[in-house]
Design a protein around this nucleic acid. Sequence first.
DNA 1: CTTAATTGTTAAGCAAGCTTAACTTTGTTC
DNA 2: GAACAAAGTTAAGCTTGCTTAACAATTAAG
Lengths: 221, 221
Amino acid sequence: MSTISKENYLKAIFSYSTELDNNASTTMIANHLSISSSAISDMAKKLSKEGLVKYEKYKGIMLTPHGEKAALKVIRRHRLWELFLMNVLGLDWSEVHNEAEKLEHYSTDFLIDKIDEYLGHPDFDPHGHPIPKKNGSIPEIPNVILLAEAETNNKYELISVNDKESELINFLKKVGLKLNSKLEIVDKLDYDNSISVRVNKKNITLSKKVSDNLFVRLIEG
Amino acid sequence: MSTISKENYLKAIFSYSTELDNNASTTMIANHLSISSSAISDMAKKLSKEGLVKYEKYKGIMLTPHGEKAALKVIRRHRLWELFLMNVLGLDWSEVHNEAEKLEHYSTDFLIDKIDEYLGHPDFDPHGHPIPKKNGSIPEIPNVILLAEAETNNKYELISVNDKESELINFLKKVGLKLNSKLEIVDKLDYDNSISVRVNKKNITLSKKVSDNLFVRLIEG
DNA sequence: CTTAATTGTTAAGCAAGCTTAACTTTGTTC
DNA sequence: GAACAAAGTTAAGCTTGCTTAACAATTAAG
């Protein structure tokens, strides 16, 4: 049976799965969830028994197709709630995540479908992340790269933010960067890998730490 | 600390408190929550230690002012969610309760205030029940009596439904009765205590079981 | 007012989901 | 490739919130 804990494990494992390496390590998940690593080993066995996860001792954890479907379902709920709370109640970019983090576990499929319908079956959430469809498919983001990898003199649009740390979102607010903001790369500084961009007719400099967590889409070459 | 279980206990105890008798019995709460009565005794001790409840062995359970405040807070969350889901997402009378039953435990005060504001600080929920205010006060319903106690030839408005059993709500839907429906008492039948009322130009007969769970307000004498 | 039925409490035990501490495997460095 | 560090696992134990079974208090009926 699915519980809150299990849903959170699945989400965490999912977030460490890439095309290159689908394996999540015990410590990664432990840190992500702020839980001891022994608890992770334990849970890995349970999820494995339920067929949600492929788990071999000392070899890492990997979602099965079944587990991935379950994870996407939770992510769908999370992102729909985020968008809904922003659009309807006018919550802030930085406020929605925490609320959604709870509500995602306590909404029936029925309610989520109603929200989806209300919003017109949107493809992306307020952070620019794709909202998995009911059937498990994931809307594609076109030509997205890290801001850190953007090229000088090109123009980009801010598409998505790695929101693991909400400090980043607060930082962006202060600097005046929003989702869909247009930014032109003015200069890339080899010395500290910072990047100088022009937004709203102002030049600002972003550290590597920031540009490594922002995703952009090329709009003018 | 407040947990989901504790919140549900407090709500249950509250629902058995009247002006006449503020005491809730172990079995009443056990039935209400579908939980063994031993679990109730256990929890009563815990809540008592936290000062939320006055509990004496074999003498019943009673909310302290502190506990009542906590219960009203949960009820407020529940009723605001109900109204919100109906108004915004168009959920049905019979659908909102179950959703709200979960969401009420996982909403921050911040979110609830936003919902309250969005709805324009409403006084009553979709079932006609008063929504406790943030400060703990309860909006008054004027001149409300049980339909079972209504008098022949008078006109009443349906104000509130005892929604402990959702079957009743389904029944009302079928019969065509809604909140704020106007009904005229045509006859009261002594034989089985059923009551004959005129609604929307149709006469229908309601059993004692039904009329004991509907609250009405006199509109014409 | 005694007895039987009802109601309430205590005790023991279980599952979930954690923790810490001890131990094992794997990886890294020289 | 030996030795140590890092990562992962196992074991024992804790808390919450439940259960069932046995026992105690209260109430109701004759």
